[in-house]
């Protein structure tokens, strides 16, 4: 039981990184990307290949995974980010499918549908993690969640983040304010992809194996659900959304109902969440967080008086 809960906590951590990074792309910048699972997968596969084939250490493999995911983000971003909303969604969906097809068919690199097994557990400062000791992974994963949360939060409270919000709100007005919208969208996309790659890397060493079908379209949808449920453009809310969705998904197993409830129930639930949230509460359960500059302004008004 305790192991199961720890497992749940680890998954929530990994998915939180995914939903946080998608929130930057979709929630703040307003780019509906349906290929987040692909970036996740590229990260996981890169780590798997580097650690089993090239025998690289975990940290280097993780960094390279992030960078490669990010490069793919730029690669897909350059041609498609000029597209509006739904076109972008379809193009990214297509990209995700291409990546999965390549994972299945590029046998020499990815070992095809079987995937890559026996990924060594990471060695951190001379301390080798043991897969059966789940708490070690809890610490590792959540350390990253906290760091990434901090970084993304910082980004959003900066001038860069403000520009992303502006692009989301009105792209033409943003251009007229001197913002290089294309560049910013691509940077946003590549940062999101970078962190998704990091999540993939963590997933690979925790799961110790990767296979193509993990990284399908449904996973992208699930991540999107977490963002939508929590509230687009609010990092804390997105983590709440992730906790709810992952827990709800695992609940049947937790309660021992997994034989009674068909596996599709989860997905039906995701679908319902999307439809109902859009109709009744498009801003998510917690809504969008807004920076309050009131105090700063009041202070500086006072100072002058």
């Amino acid at each position: 039981m305790i192991n199961f809960i720890l497992l749940l906590v680890i998954y929530i951590g990994i998915y939180s990184i995914l939903s946080l990074s998608l929130n930057l792309i979709a929630g703040y910048t307003g780019l509906l990307s349906l290929c987040h699972a692909a970036f996740f997968g590229i990260g996981a596969y890169t780590t798997a290949i580097l650690m089993t084939g090239a025998k690289l250490d975990f940290w280097s493999a993780m960094l390279i995974s992030g960078v490669i995911s990010s490069l793919f983000g730029i690669l897909i971003g350059l041609p498609t980010l000029r597209l509006k909303g739904d076109y972008l969604a379809i193009a990214t969906l297509g990209f995700g499918e291409i990546v999965r097809n390549l994972m299945i068919n590029w046998d020499s690199l990815t070992r095809g549908p079987m995937g890559i097994n026996n990924i060594p557990s990471p060695n951190i400062l001379g301390f080798k993690l043991i897969p059966s000791q789940k708490w070690q992974y809890v610490i590792l994963v959540w350390l990253f969640v906290i760091i990434i949360f901090f970084i993304l939060n910082r980004i959003m409270h900066s001038r860069f983040g403000r520009a992303l919000s502006a692009i989301n709100d009105d792209e033409i007005a943003a251009l007229a304010m001197g913002i290089n919208t294309t560049k910013y969208k691509i940077i946003s996309f590549s940062i999101g992809a970078f962190f998704a790659g990091i999540a993939g890397s963590l997933f690979a060493v925790f799961n110790q194996s990767v296979s193509p079908n993990t990284f399908d379209f449904m996973l992208s949808i699930m991540i999107l659900c977490m963002v939508v449920l929590g509230g687009m453009g609010n990092y804390l809310a997105v983590i709440v959304g992730t906790v709810i969705i992952v827990t709800a998904g695992e609940l049947p197993r937790l309660l021992g109902f997994s034989n009674v409830i068909p596996p599709q129930t989860n997905q039906i639930l995701f679908g319902l969440i999307l439809v109902l949230m859009m109709i009744y509460r498009p801003q998510g359960i917690l809504g969008r967080k807004r920076l309050d500059f009131g105090k700063i302004i009041q202070n500086s008004i006072k100072k002058e008086v």
Partner: peptide, 21 residues
């Protein structure tokens, strides 16, 4: 613009999985 698209994705997933059940 994004709202109906997300809703449509939701409907698609519901129908697909409901018919699987």
């Amino acid at each position: 613009r994004l709202a109906p698209l997300l809703s449509a994705i939701g409907v698609s997933i519901i129908l697909m999985n409901l018919s699987a059940v």
